[in-house]
Design a protein around this nucleic acid. Structure first.
Lengths: 369, 369
DNA sequence: GTTTGTTAGTTCAGCGCACTTACATATTCC
DNA sequence: GGAATATGTAAGTGCGCTGAACTAACAAAC
């Protein structure tokens, strides 16, 4: 039965070729170097087609020949081909911090090659956009390789075209960041919400499995991103993962959003740090984890999630809090939901958003992720 | 940016043709009859290609010429073509009731043409499978049209191949219902969980929008199905929507599953009816709705759902309970999540699963949904 | 009543893409 | 050294779409 997807539009022969190109890149990306004959076997394409596409990919500088493998068997020894991870670079930008914009030059393997950042220093609106332009330009100047594209993880709700619908901190509203950057830089630009960007990073480079993945980003605010059935979830109005102001404790603290007991009031780093100073540390972390677990149990059950990843200050998240959340979720969901569940912290640490921004570009430009 | 889907496999020219075939069927299915030239315009295909595909579809009996439209404008009047909704029939089967198996002959427009049912009368395991075979055979005999396929909504967890992993009531475990039926009947057979089936029915024939849709089925048990980004959510182990034994009230009633305060203990019809007899009716419905809303608020916020549909006895669901649930969800989520949300009862009533089973076939065989 | 303009649908040659078949090449096994 | 095995390339085939040109059928203008 698979996943019957509704046909989305006209399909050209050109699309077929791009699809197969991505198929091969994807294979090299996930499984590493292989011979053309191996690729033909795993993808189902013929050796002829694989050779043809490979010639194109080599010409584009995305793939390189690596010679014969060490060990040898009967028959003509194969020529390995592999992704030329460092022949092309990607610019990743993380706008989720409140005081600075960080960026990086990243290779096709998701490895950070260089970093750079600019202070926000109160820049808002158009000035903040100009700052992103500056950061991007400076990052592009830091690599001598062709740049595949620019990925940006921005706070706030971002639509599919890369327009920031609403980001209060930067005073952005209906700001067409992607098109503005693309016009300025002459490069493909992809913009998405920071939590969505982060979950893509974790999904692709965080050794995560193939099941549903939810990443909860805990910082000044709280937000989530989800990858379900292999694809990023956008939601009805592009606001999937906006979980920070879901009420988890009706008897809790008053929130700035006018509700009471929002998830942010117990979990956002400033609030959590403050409560840790005032009360018994282990108790606060445990009770916070329990409230989080209670809120997430219905989500885990409904989605039959495979992995729940916490991203944020490890000293806060990776201990009693995570354990209490995991325990609560298991207590509150049935075995068929919780048996397959993994609750862990991010393997990419502070770089999730940067690396995720690179994944935006990889997926958009190469069909790889 | 769209939705960068990872390439799933080799693409043949044949697939292109099938894709375009589905594209045209989809257009006729959703927008009704149109001229070939109109179809060419809306799909982006050329008139030549549309004509060619149409000839094929007419030959297959799926589409019929309807002559010229009444009103006329400049130029040669078009020939309308439309889906031949009654030239082919679909068999839909609903196994979610405890005492009987119901089935129907359904046309391509999702309209029930004939009904039939068999008593389960305690049949379990292989005997229950045989009963499904009998029901299917008898239904096929009730129509003189070619049968496009058989769709089955079964209780329990069902994998992508249509094998029922676990359905306690029927004592099925790893039961390959789809292949067994397909071999027996010589027809394509699609099996899915009843709640998943129902949500497909609602999505396709329930006048629902394009955003995320969650259908909560309230009966002897409680389960849900979700359509996100236009496609059915399966979940990591095929157990998406298994929400009946998520704990919503830790101080609640003991559940048969050994947990306390599962959603089923407050919402399943038998439990709810019992509580309604013992206490004030409005109060019970309202408090039940509030607990339901509290459990669903994190789900609604996380997924940025567009529609939440309750399916089950209308006299229980469509009143204070629905209102309390909706109010609670709105109180507990932020405007960006709740503004776009619609909470309603199913427009298909008792037939959701039957009609959804037909959608399984429509989607699987024609790529339409 | 004829001409003009517009739209619908078909015919035909051509092109892109992947496939099949066939072959050159390079190595191991006997 | 020859048979067997495997890789990668070359040539030709088939399928599906496209653009351009053509026929058909009508309304509006004169």
């Amino acid at each position: 039965m698979g996943r019957p997807l509704r046909p989305r539009g006209k399909l050209l022969q050109e699309d077929t070729r791009r699809h197969h190109r991505s198929l091969l890149l994807q294979q090299l990306f996930r499984e590493g170097p292989a011979s053309r004959a191996d690729l033909a076997r795993t993808t189902g394409l013929t050796r002829v087609t694989v050779s043809d596409l490979m010639a194109e990919l080599v010409a584009d500088g995305l793939v390189e020949e690596l010679g014969a493998p060490a060990e040898s068997r009967v028959g003509k020894p194969p020529t390995l081909v592999g992704l030329a991870a460092d022949a092309t670079h990607i610019i990743g930008i993380d706008l989720s911090a409140t005081d600075r914009m960080t960026g990086a030059v990243i290779n096709l393997a998701g490895e950070v090659q260089a970093r750079h950042e600019v202070e926000i220093a109160g820049a808002r609106g158009a000035a903040a956009v100009a700052l992103v332009h500056r950061l991007a330009t400076e990052l592009i100047a830091m690599t001598d390789r062709p740049v595949l594209g620019v990925g940006v993880g921005s706070p706030g709700v971002v639509d599919a075209a890369g327009t920031v619908i609403d980001a209060p901190n930067l005073e952005w509203s209906e700001t067409p960041l992607a098109t503005s950057l693309a016009d300025d830089l002459g490069l493909p630009v992809f913009v998405a919400n920071d939590a969505n960007t982060a979950v893509l990073g974790e999904h692709t480079f965080g050794e995560s499995g193939d099941g549903g993945l939810m990443l909860l980003r805990v910082g000044t605010g709280v937000g989530a991103g989800l990858v379900l059935e292999g694809a990023l979830l956008h939601g009805h109005l592009g606001a999937a993962g906006e979980i920070g102001h879901v009420v988890v404790d009706p008897d809790g603290e008053r929130c700035a959003c006018s509700r009471t007991g929002c998830l942010e009031t117990i979990l956002a780093v400033p609030h959590l740090r403050r409560r840790l100073e005032q009360h018994d540390s282990a108790g606060v972390l445990t009770s916070t984890g329990e409230l989080l677990g209670a809120a997430l149990a219905p989500v885990v059950g409904t989605l039959n999630l495979h992995e729940l990843v916490l991203s944020g200050p490890a000293e806060l998240l990776d201990g009693p809090l995570r354990e209490a959340a995991e325990r609560t979720i298991r207590e509150r969901t049935m075995p068929v939901s919780s048996d397959g569940l993994v609750v862990r912290t991010s393997k990419l640490g502070e770089d999730v958003v940067l690396v995720g921004a690179a994944v935006l570009v990889l997926a958009g430009q190469l069909g790889v992720s």
